[in-house]
Simulated scan of single mutants.
Amino acid sequence: MPSPLQKYFAQRVKNLFNHLHDFDVSAEEGALHDLRVELKKLRAVIKFLQQVYSKQKLKKPAHLLRTIFQQAGEIREYQLLQQWLRKYHLKVLEERYFPAERLHEMNADFRKQAPAFKNDLKEIIELSGRFVAHTNGILAEQYFADLHAQLQEKTSADLPSREWHDLRKLIKQWMYALNWVVPEEVGAKESVLAYFNKLQEQIGQWHDLEMVKEAFSQKQIYLSQDMEVQKDFALAWEKLTHSLKYRERQVVEMLAAQQVVS
């Protein structure tokens, strides 16, 4: 009988090819988001396997998967940036610095590579699947317990904002690993799961804004002498600063509430 990890891995394989095909056909934002989620879940499995066996044995599948994920991530970040600019009607900044044409180019380039990505995914699945098939379920439960202990330790401390994104990655890894253990363990962690899921969502919203801030910095928009750009940038910075403070406060409050979580 397949272990929870084997079932989880098999579902990832099915979903990955479906979502890659959907994006290749439609180039829709939702299809790319779904693809990235599946890539994250598969990366989580490989990261676990690297703890059980050795990083060297899984070096190639990890590298291939990271390459696909990074390219999909660049498109996703650009999509989020454009959404934020359009939300506040910052047309000048969008047209001068973050044009829609660039997103079309990125999508087209990704779709051109779809056949190569499919071959890479097949190799990733073949190489990592061998380890999944021979991994004892007890090891997955031990790994899950270790992740949970790490989460409890990190969220019990006064965590600086520079460590929030890494905390979110740890939460995601823990949430994915929850699918690899026995159902009884899942039921016992329902209230904790609700807390950590909400926390990682709050950190994600904060990190999206940090990404917008970084994009502005890289383009050095603040140096522009164009009056239209200055006007848009002043409004953008006001909205960004206000939103960041709000999101930061939400994360801080959630971290402060950790002691009520069992």
Rank of each mutant, 00 (worst) to 15 (best):
A188C: 12
L193Q: 12
Q113M: 12
L159R: 05
I171N: 00
E95S: 09
D146A: 15
V132Q: 03
T135V: 01
A194G: 07
K112L: 13
E153P: 01
F144K: 10
N119M: 15
E94W: 09
N136T: 05
Y97E: 00
A188P: 04
D166Y: 02
W174N: 07
K91E: 07
P183H: 05
Y143D: 03
E141H: 10
E95F: 02
K118E: 11
E101D: 07
Y97K: 01
R96P: 00
E184Q: 13
H89G: 01
K122M: 14
A133I: 09
A145L: 10
K122D: 13
L159A: 01
A140M: 14
L147G: 02
E123Y: 05
Y97M: 01
A145T: 15
E141R: 14
A114N: 07
L121E: 03
P99C: 07
A177V: 04
W180D: 06
E163L: 08
G187C: 08
Y195F: 14
N107G: 06
G137T: 14
A114C: 09
H104W: 06
F117L: 08
A177G: 09
V182Y: 13
S156L: 04
L167A: 00
P160T: 00
E101R: 05
E184I: 08
K154N: 08
N197D: 13
M175V: 06
A194V: 13
A108S: 12
V186H: 15
K122F: 12
A114D: 04
E95T: 06
A140V: 09
I125Q: 06
R168N: 00
N136C: 08
Q142G: 05
Q173Y: 02
P183K: 07
W174M: 03
S161C: 00
D158P: 00
E123I: 12
K189Q: 12
